Simulated scan of single mutants.
Amino acid sequence: MRDPDLLIDEALDAEERELLRSMGEESGFLTQSLAVLQGPTGWVKVVIMIAQAVMFLAGVWTAWHFFNAVEPVQQLRWGLPSAVLLIVSIIMKMALIPSLEANRLMRELKRIELQLARSSGSS
């Protein structure tokens, strides 16, 4: 079966191909991640990232004490908070993934919209 991207590329004329290439390739993960922190809800995501970083650092700190503890009670006292903090840290980080995917989807929709506008304009 042929690649859908190749079929689309063959259907476009040279001018449209050049326009799509000028839009650039999909940006890297770091660029996409930083783009999530912009826009009208960017401040909320910045707060989430700061809280996530604080929880992660606290989880690492409590894990350090857990591994240095000798008594089982001390291990429980440091181990349980460590596990909870690290798990909540991961959950908060994963809460930002839908925004990342939404940004990627909006970029693709804009490319399709551009293609539709170009094709309707040439007819």
Rank of each mutant, 00 (worst) to 15 (best):
M1I: 00
M1V: 01
R2W: 09
R2S: 09
P4S: 04
P4E: 11
L6S: 06
L6A: 11
L7M: 10
I8M: 13
D9P: 00
D9M: 01
D9S: 05
D9K: 04
L12W: 10
D13R: 02
E16P: 00
E16Q: 13
E16I: 05
R17N: 05
E18S: 06
M23T: 00
M23K: 08
G24S: 06
E25V: 05
E25M: 11
E25W: 14
E25P: 02
E26D: 14
E26F: 09
E26H: 06
E26T: 05
S27Y: 01
G28K: 11
Q32T: 01
S33D: 02
L34C: 03
L34G: 01
A35W: 09
A35M: 09
L37H: 07
Q38C: 01
G39P: 04
P40E: 14
G42V: 03
W43D: 03
K45R: 14
K45I: 02
V46K: 11
V46Q: 08
V46T: 06
I48P: 01
Q52H: 07
Q52R: 09
V54N: 04
M55W: 13
M55R: 04
F56C: 02
F56I: 03
G59P: 03
G59M: 04
V60L: 14
V60I: 14
A63E: 11
W64G: 08
W64S: 10
H65P: 00
H65V: 00
H65Y: 15
F66D: 10
F66L: 12
F67V: 09
N68K: 12
N68L: 14
A69D: 11
V70P: 00
V70W: 13
V70Q: 12
E71T: 12
E71F: 11
V73C: 06
Q75W: 10
Q75S: 06
G79K: 03
G79S: 07
L80M: 12
P81S: 04
S82G: 07
S82F: 11
S82A: 15
V84S: 06
I87W: 15
I87V: 15
I90W: 10
I90Q: 07
I90V: 14
M94E: 10
A95N: 03
L96W: 07
L96C: 05
L96A: 04
L96V: 13
S99G: 10
A102K: 13
R104G: 02
R104Y: 12
L105R: 12
L105C: 00
M106N: 08
R107I: 07
R107C: 06
E108N: 05
L109A: 08
L109T: 03
K110Y: 09
R111E: 06
R111S: 05
R111N: 08
R111F: 08
E113I: 00
E113N: 03
L114Q: 02
L114G: 01
Q115M: 15
Q115P: 00
L116G: 00
A117T: 10
A117L: 13
S119R: 14
S120F: 15
G121Y: 13
G121D: 15
S122Y: 10
S123F: 12
S123Q: 13
